[in-house]
Each structure stands twice: as structure tokens, then as C-alpha cells.
Simulated assay, not measured.
Amino acid sequence: MMSGIAFMGKHSFKDFGYTISPDKEIGIAEKQKNLITVPFSNSSYDFSELYGSQTYSPRSLTYPINIVNEGNPSRNALISARTRLLNWLANSPGKQPLLDDDYPGYYFLAELDQGASFHDDWRTGILTANFTAYPFMIGTRPEGNDIWDEFNFELDVAQQVRFDVNSSLSVNLLNVGTPDVIPEIVTSSGMFLRKGNTTLEVPTGRNKSDDFTLESGDNMITITGTGTIEFVYYKEML
């Protein structure tokens, strides 16, 4: 099966029969720096993380899609194919998951808002789709999953994210990604979480709080209560 991209429920090769040129470009997000230069000095101060973690710029994705209509090599068929592809790629309500077969286990959150270009020789053509994406690739499966055949020994980590708590329990959650992530917290009863100087009261059910994040690396958490608790989050990589 030829590799391609999946977006808005369709695949470039499986549904349309078109291949992606090897000239595709997967941009890398850049750090957004806030440097203040000291007057009359060669020194400067970096305030990029003054209000939290380091921020990154959006990343660009460029996919040249080869259009070859072997069964009907006419000009009208080529234009129809271009129109069909454009309506597929551009008709998204904001950024949507884009899966690239060359990056298994991840997806990009992207939108065709940079437009597209089209070049042809009457019978064949190349539609170049330019996406703007969220800075990080997002894992398709939550941390703590036990699907061994998909485990990446270079990037993944085996860890427990669901715990039985009886009065009090200290756990360490590892965020192997680059940015901070906000986990969904699923509990069978009300509990309290303490992480550093932050204390969060978590009611029964599924909850999220902007005040409770997992930084890149180790996250030591003390859980107080009785019942089961699970942390649902996905790694995000550059």
C-alpha cells in the first residue's frame, strides 16, 4: 500500500489513488523568544518562560499530491480531480487531525489555511497543499497503553497511569513530550492531588483543570482519598 495522508475521514491514496511526492516538507516549530537587550551592553535577558513553559510557533506542512488520471487522461478529468482534492482538504472546520503514514503513532493538528497551488501539463498535475499546524505531533494513543506491537523503544515509555488509592499514595507520572500537557483525571470518588505547590480537589467523574499540568519529565504527585484514579494524556513531540 502506498503511503499518504489521512484527513477529514479520507486517505489520499486509499480513497483517491494519488501519491505524495517525496518533496513534501514537514516543518519544525521554532521557539518564540522574548529577548530584552540591556542598554549599552552586549547582554540580554530571555523572558520567554516568564508566564509558564516555552512557547513555539506553528509548524508548516507541505504536501505535493501527484494527480495522474490513467483511465481518463483528459484536461477536464484533471481539473475535476483538482477540484475534488481541494474541496476535501480545504473543507475543514478549523484545525483537524492529519495523519501522515510516514509518522505512525502520531497526528498533526492542521488546517489548509495557507492555500494551495496547482501545476499541470494538461494530462497530469501536482497539487501542492500548504497546511498550518499546531507546533507538536500528538500521540494517537494515551500514555500507559499496553499495545506492545506499537511500542517505540526510542520515544515511548512504559508506565502506569491508573492507580488504586487507599488513604494516600505518591506516584510519578512521566511526560516524555516537549510541552506541558493537561491530563484528564478520571476518579471513582472525590480526591485531592498535590503537585509541588499546587493542590487540586477532584470530584467524582472526568475532570480537567488548567491549574494542573504535567511538565516535561518527572511529575511527582501525592493523591489523597480512597478509590481508583486514572490520568489520561497524550505525548506531544516536535
Rank of each mutant, 00 (worst) to 15 (best):
S3L: 11
F7T: 00
G9H: 07
K14G: 01
G17R: 06
I20Y: 05
P22N: 05
P22D: 10
E30T: 11
E30P: 11
E30G: 15
V38E: 15
N42H: 11
Y45H: 08
D46S: 10
S48Y: 06
L50A: 15
G52I: 08
Q54L: 15
Y56E: 02
S57A: 14
L61T: 00
Y63M: 10
Y63H: 04
I65L: 04
N66F: 02
N69L: 13
E70R: 05
G71I: 04
G71N: 09
N72V: 03
N76H: 04
N87E: 14
G94H: 03
G94C: 08
K95E: 13
Q96F: 02
L99Y: 11
D100P: 13
D100V: 04
D101G: 04
D102H: 03
Y103R: 07
P104M: 08
Y106M: 09
L109W: 02
F118M: 14
H119I: 09
W122Q: 13
F136A: 03
M137N: 00
M137T: 03
G139W: 01
P142G: 00
I147L: 15
D149V: 10
L155K: 15
L155Y: 07
A158K: 07
Q159L: 14
Q160P: 04
V161I: 15
N166S: 15
S168Y: 02
S170E: 14
V171M: 13
L173I: 08
L173C: 09
N175Y: 06
P179M: 05
V181G: 06
I182M: 15
E184N: 05
I185P: 12
I185F: 03
I185K: 09
S188V: 00
S189Y: 00
S189P: 06
L193P: 03
R194V: 14
N197K: 13
V202K: 01
D211T: 05
F212W: 09
L214R: 07
L214W: 02
G217I: 10
N219S: 12
I221N: 05
I223A: 12
I223Q: 12
I223M: 14
G225W: 06
G225H: 01
T226I: 11
G227S: 11
T228Y: 13
L238K: 11
